[in-house]
Simulated scan of single mutants.
Amino acid sequence: MSVPDLFFSVGEPSGDLHAARVMQHLPASTRSSCRGFGGPQMAAQGCTIDYPLTQLAVVGFAEVLPKLREFVRVADMASDIFERWPPAGVVLVDFPGFNWHIAKRARQAGIPVLYYLPPQLWAWGGWRIKKMRKYVDHVLCALPIEYEWYAEHGMSCQYIGHPFFDSVAHQQLDAAFLRAWSAADDLLVAVLPGSRSREIRTIWPLQLEVIRELAARHRRVTFLVACLNQQHLDHCKSLLKPSDPSERIKFYANRTSEIIEVADCGLMKSGSVSLEMMARGTPSVVMYHVSRSTYEFARRVVHVGWMTLPNLIAGTTVMPEFLAVGKQCGPTIERTIAAMDRLLGDREERTLRKLELARLTRRFGQPGASARAAQAICQQFGIAHATALSTAPGLQTA
């Protein structure tokens, strides 16, 4: 009997990486027979990419509309594949706006579906659970709150941990950079303005206001700004004024992990990188910004008390987070300054925060999620796997 094929549908660059890490742990014969929609990381693992879906990554309704016809064409391509070469199973990774359509077409073709890194229905849009039950057979959950919600709503699911911690564990850091900044006399603040250009345009000006005030209050502090690439770095640097303490604001591209590792504390935009802050034990304060219309909509549909992942995991505030709405940013800036001021001015406060993050990491931040995901996929689709499905501390199945 031939090795069953797996079809992956992955629409985000981060999902491409997570799917590729899962593939590394699949049996070699299964890995070589994988196909689907994804990106270069999956292709590097031997997956046949039927369409480079990560190139269509979009955020928000306005970005979807111009590409709607192409999304429909790609979904039709999946239907053709399912009819002509039906795989043993379909694995969806994040990207729910499009992947719902892939799940529906797989169901119509009688192909079982597993969702890895599923939509955050527990945070908002809980009514979509009906769609999940209808089209998805099994869910692999990255967060404990996610597992609890899906289990309570009758989904077959497993909590396997977050694959971001695999990335942290395997990250090779620049030793020269670490040595140079570890010897610094100043306190070091990691500043993370985000990875998307739109985020940087809204968050970096707010962070810069915070930096200016903190620099005036704390003379022995250096700010290390972690930019995704040179384009982002140039934009951030262009907003500095002649009066800014530029000698204490250092910009780097592609050094985010190194900056988090050496920093005494951090000022960041909300996002999955907060898990790296947690894993590396860097106490942080989080800022995020939404438009007034988004805020009014979110008030009615969002059902969680935090947006930052470590806070959601802990069920309490371990990283203070502050929301700016529309043009009303002054109060958010002031609250962020106050929270950062406490971290910079009180070593005991920093130590307590580090201990909280270390406790969370020991319980929820252990690597191995990618291997567990691969084992669960093989188990779900009847593929022989050399390793029995492991159960790490705190991991559960429903």
Rank of each mutant, 00 (worst) to 15 (best):
E148R: 06
A123N: 14
S156F: 09
H153K: 06
G161N: 10
H153T: 10
Y147D: 04
G154T: 02
E152V: 07
M132Q: 14
G125Y: 11
G125K: 10
S156I: 09
M132C: 13
G161R: 14
G126S: 15
P163V: 12
W127S: 15
H138K: 14
Y135S: 10
D137E: 11
V139K: 06
G126I: 10
E146H: 03
M155E: 08
W122G: 07
Y150V: 02
K130C: 06
F165G: 00
V168N: 00
W122Q: 13
A142F: 04
H138P: 03
Y150C: 03
I129P: 05
G161A: 10
R133W: 03
H153M: 07
F165Q: 05
D166V: 05
I145V: 15
R128H: 14
W149M: 01
H153A: 08
M155H: 07
K131N: 13
A142G: 05
C141M: 04
F164G: 15
W149S: 04
A142M: 11
D166Y: 00
H153W: 07
L143I: 02
A123H: 05
W149V: 05
R128T: 08
A123E: 09
V139H: 01
K130R: 15
D137Q: 01
M132N: 06
G125M: 09
S167F: 05
I160P: 13
G161F: 04
F164T: 14
P144Y: 04
S167I: 15
D166S: 06
I160R: 08
E152S: 11
K131M: 13
P163W: 07
I145E: 05
W122C: 10
E152W: 01
C157M: 08
K134E: 15
Y147Q: 00
G161W: 02
Y159K: 03
V136H: 05
E146F: 00
F164I: 14
L143T: 00
W149P: 02
Q158V: 11
W122E: 14
Y135M: 08
A123R: 06
V139S: 04
C141H: 06
V136Q: 07
V139E: 03
I129T: 07
F165C: 04
K134I: 01
G154K: 09
F165E: 03
I145T: 07
G161Y: 03
G126L: 05
Y147V: 02
R128L: 01
W124S: 07
F164S: 13
Y150E: 02
G125P: 14
A123K: 12
W149K: 05
A151M: 00
I145D: 03
H153V: 06
L143V: 02
V136G: 12
L143Y: 00
